[in-house]
């Protein structure tokens, strides 16, 4: 006689416990199973969120345990929203977010489209392309600082080779105009393979029969691309945009290693600014309000986006 895994589990349950469980309703058993997750969720997510919201209305500083904590109402929120520096940071984040997503989607999709074709060395090229995303962002940031070095950096030499400019005549991470692009380039280099993989999954999910039917209808390749490939890959693309959007809104390590947020505040993204307020200036109340504003922003944008994504999927 053979036993299934379920039979084995039932036999392994001690009789006393089995009797006790037999007396419980399905609903109770369901609660028993779900309770640890709910507890963890409350302890790790919900409680800190509520605590952060509470702190955001105070002048609390975690490095001053002996100081009185005063209720300051909306003052922290008002200060943040009327601070020019915060808006500059938001602009820097928006620039980084938009351009990295645009470039990664375009290049990632193009690479996926090429890799999807059958050719010799296909697997090898896929592995080579995917290599950057396997590295640590801090490591990537660090070696891009060397690549961008005006006197010895490979990037400057490549640009100089094509333009004839002196490599030492420009500094990607020291120039206000170039630094925002320096971080976009490094992030695009690192994360385009991720978008490519998602697009590749989308492309490979399209049944060949659809293209064959289109061929029978004498649809051109161009037409097939716009009426079959793009609509069917779109949900995957939108998912990639969501992942990259959320990730890049939180971007910290790569940019800190690369530019430290400079020159000036040019590449100070919101996460860098928030960390500076919370753990360098120790303005806990102020930074809590900052975190709440960012949370609401991301949550709001993500909700709108997920609704749009669902609509695309329903089509």
């Amino acid at each position: 006689m053979t036993f299934t895994p379920i039979d084995k589990a039932a036999r392994a349950t001690p009789p006393a416990m089995a009797r006790r469980i037999r007396g419980l309703s399905d609903r109770t058993i369901a609660w028993i199973f779900v309770a640890p997750s709910i507890f963890l969720l409350l302890a790790v997510n919900i409680f800190p969120l509520i605590w952060t919201i509470r702190l955001s209305f105070t002048n609390f500083r975690v490095n001053r345990p002996n100081n009185d904590v005063e209720w300051v109402g909306l003052r922290n929120y008002q200060r943040i929203l009327t601070d020019e520096g915060t808006w500059a940071t938001m602009q820097a984040t928006a620039h980084f977010l938009i351009w990295t997503i645009v470039l990664q989607v375009l290049i990632g999709f193009a690479l996926a489209f090429l890799i999807n074709k059958k050719f010799r060395g296909n697997d090898l090229w896929t592995t080579i392309i995917v290599f950057p995303m396997m590295l640590s962002p801090a490591v990537v940031g660090n070696f891009w600082t060397f690549l961008y070095q005006p006197q010895i950096g490979l990037f400057n030499y490549v640009v100089a080779f094509f333009t004839g400019a002196d490599p030492a005549s420009f500094s990607m991470i020291g120039d206000v105009m170039l630094a925002p692009w320096a971080i976009v380039i490094a992030d695009t280099w690192m994360w385009t393979p991720f978008v490519m993989l998602i697009c590749l999954a989308g492309l490979r999910s399209i049944p060949n029969s659809i293209y064959e039917a289109a061929e029978c209808d004498r649809a051109s390749k161009w037409r097939q691309f716009w009426t079959i490939t793009i609509p069917m890959v779109l949900p995957f693309l939108m998912l990639a945009v969501l992942f990259r959007g959320i990730e890049n809104f939180k971007m910290f390590d790569l940019v800190v290693q690369l530019t430290g947020g400079g020159p000036g505040n040019t590449t100070t993204l919101t996460s860098i600014d928030l960390k500076r307020e919370a753990f360098e200036k120790w303005r806990t109340g102020y930074s809590s309000a900052y975190a709440v504003i960012l949370f609401v922003t991301v949550f709001g944008l993500a909700s709108i986006y997920v609704k749009a994504l669902n609509k695309v999927k329903e089509r």
């Binding site: 961008y148 006197q151 030492a168 005549s169 420009f170 500094s171 020291g174 430290g260 400079g262 020159p263």
Partner: peptide, 13 residues
């Protein structure tokens, strides 16, 4: 002025 005129390129940080 010292930074602009007398430091190595790329020494911004």
């Amino acid at each position: 002025e010292l930074y602009d005129t007398a430091t190595p390129p790329g020494s911004s940080n």
